[in-house]
Write a protein that binds this DNA or RNA. Structure first.
Lengths: 264, 264
DNA sequence: GATGCCCTAG
DNA sequence: CTAGGGCATC
């Protein structure tokens, strides 16, 4: 059985729901994780997707953040509580199981500015993910961690590593924090299939013609535990959502897994 | 020499500048008076119009009000100070001379609600225009007073005079105040050429399909002193700016004058 | 009710 | 640059 997952920072589900639905109907992933839905649960356009056969779970708040998981298959909610580190009310983590595979969808804090309280918060938030995994899952079993990590892990994940080194999103402390969680048992599925530099998922709105000039960052990720990662057959970035009138500042990443054959 | 003037409440010059420029290039008026530019002078898109050959003078403030005059001809600023009645900082009056003709562009206060302080302010504001004209001009000479007056002078200037009588914009005290200024020496140029009811320049956003159902008000005006009014050849309302995606709640009025022949 | 500005956030 | 939300105006 082929299993395709996707992640997309929509930057408002209400602004991008038509684009997203079209993309879903064309590309037929088994799961899509969304970040920055920017909507209260009461206003999430659940019916809009339900009418076309998609299940949805979501955790939102007013104006900011917000995460959701959509699938044509049934979705089973899992524990989505990060613990004491996370500020109450912040909708940044949503976990669910689809076809028996646990999927953790996160919108990691952006961090604002190095030396700001929000940057420290980002580091703590990331590190506490390890506790969350330890408490709720086994690294020996299939597991997906995906979403907007707001961190470009390696030099080849930013367009100008020399200039950007030490900036928010490409800072050694962020790398350390993320590495610490990765060592719980994750592999970067995109990087398994694409060793080259210059593949990005995010472009700052404030940089003119950033996409055309490829001045981006790879900060959206699909990570998997070993047992699942070794069954990945493909991982790629889809630029289609960027070829629209008002694109999000992120684009979409995907990974494909072959789950047939001997059991894991 | 033909001389064509126009008035348009743009409801934000920044939102409507493309629409306006296209209209100007198509219709080639000698002067256009704008109201509700809603922009500080520092942010007025002067270059946008200058590039296409238009001179501009403007008086704006943050968020509200704001008046401007555009012309392909040179514009000479005139005294634009209404006096003590006007609240300081409010950008509602802009006077300038184009081809030797003084043009006074006003955005008269809307008045909010009858019996509100803003309604009293509106009445005082209107009446003080007579002092302004007395101080700065001669009623025997050519002069144009135009803009958004926020008053429909006659029953035929509203779609339902019976029901609307006494409401803001069609109130006897407003009629009295406006009449008092008119008697300084003005003629309603549009009415000289169009005696029929049902010609409007404003439709309330709150009335569904107001334009299609013609549920409007004629509150934008072009008035001229006798010597100029008698040279008017035409006056009309142009609905073209309403046939757009996001039209202003007002549309555009025009008047044409023939200034050749014996001197005034 | 529709629109536009300001503000915050990314 | 582009969201949402709050606010004021009409």
């Amino acid at each position: 059985m082929k299993f395709t997952v996707a992640s997309f920072n929509v930057n408002s589900i209400r602004s991008r729901k038509e684009l997203l639905l079209e993309w879903l109907l064309t590309n037929c992933p088994d799961v899509i994780c969304l970040q920055e839905t920017k909507v209260r649960d009461i206003d999430f356009p659940e019916d809009f997707f339900k009418e076309k056969g998609f299940h949805a779970i979501y955790k939102g708040q007013k104006s900011y953040n917000g995460v959701a998981i959509l699938s044509p298959h049934p979705i089973t909610p899992l524990n989505s509580d990060l613990g004491d580190v996370a500020e109450p009310g912040e909708a940044r983590l949503l976990a669910a199981s689809v076809k028996g595979i646990p999927i953790i969808n996160t919108y990691i804090p952006q961090g604002q500015a190095v030396n700001s309280p929000k940057f420290s918060y980002k580091l703590s938030w990331i590190k506490s993910m390890r506790d969350y995994f330890n408490t709720n899952y086994l690294s020996t079993l299939p597991l997906l961690w995906m979403g907007d990590f707001n961190v470009a892990p390696e030099p080849k994940d930013v367009h100008d590593p020399k200039r950007l080194y030490g900036k928010v999103g490409f800072h050694p402390e962020e790398h350390l924090a993320l590495q610490y969680v990765k060592e719980w048992g994750f592999q970067d599925v995109f990087r398994m299939h694409e060793p080259e530099a210059g593949h990005f998922t995010f472009w700052d709105y404030r940089i003119p013609k950033g996409v055309e000039r490829n001045l981006g960052w790879r900060i959206d990720h699909i990570w998997a535990t070993e047992s699942l990662a070794k069954r990945s057959t493909r991982a790629w970035i889809d630029m289609e959502p960027r070829r629209r009138e008002k694109p999000s500042d992120h684009t979409l990443i995907l990974a494909e897994f072959e789950l047939s054959g001997e059991s894991i």
